[in-house]
Design a protein around this nucleic acid. Sequence first.
DNA 1: CTCGCATCTGACAACGTTGTCCAGGCTCTA
DNA 2: TAGAGCCTGGACAACGTTGTCAGATGCGAG
Lengths: 349, 349
Amino acid sequence: MPETTRRADRLPGTRYGNRPTMKDVAARAGVGLKTVSRVVNGEPGVTPDTERRVQEAIDALGFRRNDSARVLRKGRTASIGLVLEDLADPFYGPLSRAVEEVARAHGALLINGSSAEDPEREQELALALCARRVDGLVVIPAGDDHRYLEPEIRAGVATVFVDRPAGRIDADVVLSDNFGGARDGVAHLIAHGHRRIGFIGDMPRIHTAAERLRGYRAAMEDAGIAVEERWMSLGATNPERVRRAAEDMLAGPGPVTAVFTGNNRVTVTVIRVLAEQSRRVALVGFDDIELADLLQPGVTVVAQDSAALGRTAAERLFRQLDGTLVAPERIELPTRLITRGSGELPPAD
Amino acid sequence: MPETTRRADRLPGTRYGNRPTMKDVAARAGVGLKTVSRVVNGEPGVTPDTERRVQEAIDALGFRRNDSARVLRKGRTASIGLVLEDLADPFYGPLSRAVEEVARAHGALLINGSSAEDPEREQELALALCARRVDGLVVIPAGDDHRYLEPEIRAGVATVFVDRPAGRIDADVVLSDNFGGARDGVAHLIAHGHRRIGFIGDMPRIHTAAERLRGYRAAMEDAGIAVEERWMSLGATNPERVRRAAEDMLAGPGPVTAVFTGNNRVTVTVIRVLAEQSRRVALVGFDDIELADLLQPGVTVVAQDSAALGRTAAERLFRQLDGTLVAPERIELPTRLITRGSGELPPAD
DNA sequence: CTCGCATCTGACAACGTTGTCCAGGCTCTA
DNA sequence: TAGAGCCTGGACAACGTTGTCAGATGCGAG
């Protein structure tokens, strides 16, 4: 099969396996080094005939410009970094994709990494990206102290935080209205007659979790309901703990008649638990989930627009790079209550 | 608030805003350039006292090694590229994450980009990554001719294709058993008494779609069932077309009693359509979907392990870089039929 | 006290590209 | 035909790092 390449063809040994450089192209085309550079970059000042000869040499040698050298010379990498929690989480896919699209529109590549919710790993990753001299950084914080980025920001790395605010530095932040969204969601349950309402969320050291908890408390207080300690479960990170927490608050005397869940992962687990109950328990979840409308009953959620979060953050980042922006700002995007049935169930004591 | 940094502190003007270099560190510490390099890279041959002085200078200046220059000198970037179709697709999140974890274990960063199913964009992206001198490339092909990668592969860029095979070049490929999975899924429907079975899938120019279609045809043929043209819909890419296709094959004389869907997006749409039908129609879908078990009925699927695909591909890529591998190979991972109810419904004529 | 050796340090070139600047050849005009 | 001006092409330095190699320093042994 003459039309294929076998790996055995590859030149062994030397670095990059003897990749041709502009010098090689110049020699082959019989022109100067800079002339090749001009052709490659589409700069003016090359006669059509010379350009053709250079182009032929490029094609013949399979030359490809070395962007590392280019970056070293020019000082801009045309790439931005994205540090997020977990790409496998359905919440971050669209966000990442939105950031990528904006980057692409600005001719930049996106490098991303997952912090796995570990502050140390977040720092390690962010600094590795800075060492590559990304032009900017979009960070979904795992930690709560970002002073380690001070030298980078001072050195000109555009930085925007998303989903959670930065810790101890003054920087651009784009978030959802976690407090308001949670308060509205819980108020919705109260409006449908519930008073014993459970809350299952992430560790309060995570800003979004703390804000949503605050929203829950605010809604309850507004309604004059005293929250009992056992209605709340914080830091339920894995499905087993969420399950136990849900079962606990559904059992015993004075069980909850409704549950507010603090994020999509918790919601999914709680849906399973509720499906096993004989009694109908109301549910409102933070974050939308796919197929929520097809379940019985449909799942009422407080939805945030993760793509909009990413897009807004990335656009702001490039405006920093343009020099258009000066003062860091905190942008809060609204959430949307989507009623589908589960949040409208009446209390079943 | 003395503990925060304001962007206004940033030095204006010069490239990178005056980022300190090893030279600056050396000057401040009163040592030679190479000594700084040694400290930064943890090379031996530096007295503790000197090391301390250098470290102090590094901290004082906020120095961070410029990896672009390092790459230029060393020839390895310790980064790999991933070209996939759409990060927002739940199928690719875990795959990407798996690749990232393997890369991380090898001390490499992951740069990824979405091709949006456009061959031209795939090529553009892959070559941009090569220009950055990534050490390797994991590609989920959108196009069917990858000869443009020949010079790169020859130059030593490790390359692995995932999910779909490479076109016109001989390279490592990791895929799911699309043919077998689809055949088993359709056979499962036949075993439950169905004979008029619909197939809704992607454009057959996409390898996975073609294979799954082939599996459908094989299962039908094995059972001695002549497939009617109007039972098949190929190239239904957006929800509207899928919906129409499903409605068409469910209407008219001799409607299908079961549907096999070719990917997760199609499955989701078809679930919606079936939910509106008065008659119970059986369904088996390719790709698992979240909450499939909680629907009424649960959705029977042919599941592929996207994380395993990513992990296998990345591991193979690093083995190429180790020099452990020689001959390109085609690795096929098995799929798994998960029965949840929708695929076990009897025909309702 | 001096030599030799081991240890530590630094000068220098090179990586591949781009920006600056100058040389040479051409055209056009007087 | 000579001079001015324009256009094209190329020599050279610089970007920040690392590998090479030779010099400096200190210590112990003879």
